[in-house]
Amino acid sequence: MDTFLQQLINGLTAGSVYAVVALGYTMVYGIIQLINFAHGEVVMIGAMVAFTVINALAPSGLPPLAVVLIGTGCAVPVCMLVGYSMERLAYRPLRGAPRLAPLITAIGVSIILQHLALMIWSRNIMAFPQIIESRTYFIAGAAITTVQIAILGICVLLMGALALLVYRTPLGTAMRATAQNPQVAGLMGIDVNRVIAATFVIGAALGAVAGVLFGTYYGIAQYTMGSVLGLKAFSAAVLGGIGNIPGAMLGGVLLGLVEALGAGYIGDLTDLCQYGWLSGLIDACAGGGHFILFGSNYQDVFAFVVLILVLVIRPSGLLGERVGERA
């Protein structure tokens, strides 16, 4: 039981980070129907900038929390700038072009950002300096660290703040109006370009925080970290219904849980030796041996299996696509 509970905690922590990253995908898709594949790299840049600052400040003797906050404080504006430049230079000129053009551009931007990071930070792994005394608490035998609690708390806060922004502020109203119909929104006096740029910038800011959280959780950052994280978050966004903000949150958390439980139990479930009639056929089973078909190295595959299943069974995602409103 404690193992199950532990897998739930692990899944929730990773899932809430996926959810925050997924918001970046879903917001942009909701408003201009573009899958911004470069969003994963924005998250990576956030983590790299924060790590650089934190590593530089670590020996200064400042309180650890302040160091991390300063690091995050540097990462967020940098990522906002990256998000804005990306939209302004790569996507805005293609507004109105066939949908394939911006999609391929997004892949190009992703490659450019990754290699830029490679040039700046080299291919070496950056380690998070050991400044935070991570304490472990045990709940019914399951361990939860202070870092995990902080990640869960921050993610919930961020999601709440974003929901407030989208549903309770003039900017949010403008965003929703632009999502429904950019032309009409423009006629109503909304500066559509500004709203789209704001969407990118907000998504990038969320991505920066997610990058710092992800990096702090695992203790390392590298220029390649954005690609898999980005793809998983994208899967999470599709799972919840791309373009749908609550959907991205739900999708992220669910994906984290599926991954943790899947990786935790797939090895046992696919140990063919426990199935009586099969074990006789496999030599490795003799004398209490094991023959495991899929090991826990298939952890990363779950996200993509989920993606395929959703696309086949319910293409609009769990909570439905937002695009429905446009017609």
Partner: peptide, 16 residues
Amino acid sequence: EKGTDKTTDWKAVLTK
């Protein structure tokens, strides 16, 4: 138990 040369999240394996 197996991971990959890029695995950063070992929690599922370790929990098990």
